[in-house]
Design a protein around this nucleic acid. Structure first.
Lengths: 134, 134
DNA sequence: ATTAATCCTATAACATTAGTAGGATAAAAA
DNA sequence: TTTTTATCCTACTAATGTTATAGGATTAAT
């Protein structure tokens, strides 16, 4: 089980934007250069973060990205779910995925585990990561 | 991010073995039938559990599987790692995977998250799942 | 000996991921 | 208003990983 590259790059992108103290925001091409991500690939990552409402920008020449709200108010769960839902097993979202869903100790456990995982991501803010605070 | 089928089937297999009160243990073919897993695929799942030392059996006709130790002493982390290591991101195990490993707030976070995840799996026993206790 | 069962390796179909390509659109700057 | 710089969006492909299945070797009870 691996964290996929969009989530990894997405976190790094958010860290870079949060770390910048430039009032004009951070240009996509600078993020691409600093983070060693191709401009094209970064395109889709930034799009996801934007659709989730975590970053904003204007368009055209000279624009740049900023956080939509304070880094203290952005959790890792926000960033993670910008790219994918947390499922772990399909029968959590869709009982019909498996016959035994109605009465399955395994499924009950995965649901519990999912909740624990979400809580873990929810309890960490972007600000804590940028400031390297536990 | 999904839990793969071997881990899912592996947990169900362990639940079935733990739930059985047959002194002779549970036959592989019965697990296959009850859990709707092909005998051949179950082969590899049982092999992993056995190599990890979670279950034992004798060989040949009439044999069956039992837990190697009490269900109270088997954690979900034991079962999970019978099938794969918990990595999340490659730079955790191998710093050379990425140039910025030496000083990367993102990597620091993934390491912390991994620890939290492992702790979560460690704090749940097979016995708790079988008895459906929180 | 026969039979029922596990042990083990190889391989194939399928799904997902990671990343690229090509261009459309928007707006600042000249 | 033309140019330039930058984002927006869709489609595609190569590589990788997952989910099995196939075929047979080995083991030991009957």
């Amino acid at each position: 089980m691996k964290i996929n590259s969009k989530i990894r790059y997405g976190l790094r992108t958010m860290i870079e934007i949060a770390s910048a103290n430039d009032v004009n925001g951070v240009l996509q091409k600078d993020i691409a250069k600093n983070q060693s991500i191709s401009l094209k690939y970064l395109d889709s990552i930034i799009l996801s973060l934007k659709l989730k409402g975590l970053i904003t920008n204007s368009k055209g020449k000279g624009s740049g990205y900023k956080l939509s709200r304070a880094a203290e108010e952005i959790t890792i769960l926000d960033i993670y779910t910008a790219f994918e839902q947390i499922t772990f097993v399909d029968c959590i979202c869709n009982k019909k995925f498996c016959d035994r869903s109605e009465d399955c100790p395994g499924r009950d456990y995965w649901i519990e585990m999912k909740k624990g995982f979400e809580a873990m991501l929810l309890n960490k803010t972007l600000a804590q990561i940028v400031e390297r605070k536990a």
